[in-house]
Design a protein around this nucleic acid. Structure first.
Lengths: 231, 231
DNA sequence: CGCCGCCTTGACCACCATCAAGTGGAGTGG
DNA sequence: CCACTCCACTTGATGGTGGTCAAGGCGGCG
């Protein structure tokens, strides 16, 4: 995006508000309308089952948009909740439509963001369906590492991940107890350690191999990748 | 879409070609470029694991587009293969860009289609991660029933589904052997039967309850839903 | 006929869920 | 300052869902 476009987009943001930890940002039942951007903190998309269990569909980090497209779909199909405390900002549908009409590149960037989300969702399906629990967790950690690094939120091979072991389990579809055992295995293999909501990768290359992680699906090398996180 | 737009879109299709059963339409390694529409037959998106196992990400039916957005992403992250014999038609990126610029509604419709795909992908994650195998299969059958019904490819409560039991297993992430047992259970519960690539639903309501199926995620009631299948 | 792919069935076993109990730190109130 | 609670994490025991292996049946096709 050129300067002008970036400014126009920034101007479209309403005032930002703070959402406390572990609270809903948008609920499935909420009426569509208005798009929320996550400016600071971490959040998750999730869906509930009748049994009360839930599946975390993706982890959102600063720069991610909550609802690209709900306006078009006319109904939500999932909820979004914060992990830690977050700062979010709302953009009205109307101003987004205006922006898109005026700046095709803004539209392209938003579209690009949706497509990357979709790509990540597909990879999660592999993770949940095909990989063994320890590998799936390794894969998740790799993903978070690269995404957070892209927005400058890593320190060397370490980064903050505001999830409990229970939430990790909801992301890879295993029980809390098993998450704990998998973490111990990863630690024992000297791949990574996780404590106090902080991940420290001990051997990135081995971790990637173990999790069968190939980063192309994140599309970090695309020409748009530098754009959206800058939001 | 108005008549004019529909005609313009139809005109953009190159000549259609026939692809035999169980062949790749686009491979992950293929260079991006050109969008393929599925006109007849059924196909699947899928991704391979190093072990050779694969996960089916979604089932494609007539009217679905293969690659909305690869042009933007600049790299594919999955492959698409036919199930039975298919008829596909190619649209060049260039003519799609032209069309989108000229007819905003076409662009909106394509965007809508991507969003629905994403919604379906999210629901599959629930299916694979949280539901027991028999319920997950029930859910998949419900989804296919409603999607096929929307394009007029059902006969009462029965429809063709060109998948083997092995492929069903790759879709819900269970083994072929277990698929077989689940099908027997569904049959024993008098919910549905599947033979010769044909699904016959015996009790739709009970099947939906059993699979915890709620059809909102398919967004069939959206004002765009009548448009895209008409492609 | 014989091969091959798909379905079917049985036996066995592993991954992971569930249950249960216990640890330890953070926050609260007496 | 010390109970007390609460929550996340930890660990052990047990069992079930579903994987793997192996063999056999059945239909289609060269």
């Amino acid at each position: 995006l050129e300067d002008e476009e970036a400014r126009a987009l920034a101007a479209a943001f309403g005032h930002s508000r703070i959402v406390e930890a572990r609270r809903a940002i948008v609920r499935e039942e909420d009426p569509p309308g208005g798009i929320v951007f996550l400016l600071e903190g971490q959040a998750v998309r999730h869906k509930f089952l009748e049994s009360g269990r839930r599946q975390i569909l993706s982890v959102m980090i600063p720069g991610d948009a909550c609802d690209l497209g709900v306006a078009l779909l006319e109904a939500r199909d999932h909820s979004i909740s914060t992990l830690g405390e977050c700062v979010v900002s709302q953009v009205t549908d109307a101003s987004l439509v205006q922006l898109s009409a005026r700046y095709p590149k803004v539209r392209a960037a938003l579209r690009w963001a949706t497509l990357v989300e979709e790509s990540i969702a597909r990879e999660w399906l592999l993770n949940v369906g095909q990989r063994q629990a320890p590998s799936a967790m390794a894969h998740l950690f790799c993903e978070m590492y690269y995404r957070l690094r892209a927005i400058g939120q890593t320190q060397d091979l370490s980064f903050e991940l505001a999830m409990t072991q229970g939430e990790l389990g909801e992301a890879v579809a295993i029980s809390t107890v098993h998450v704990n055992r998998c973490l111990q295995e990863l630690r024992a293999r000297k791949l990574l350690s996780f404590a106090d909501k902080r991940v420290t990768i001990l051997d990135l290359q081995k971790l990637e191999v173990f999790g069968e992680f190939v980063r192309t699906y994140l599309h970090l090398e695309s020409r748009y990748s530098a754009v959206v996180p800058a939001l």
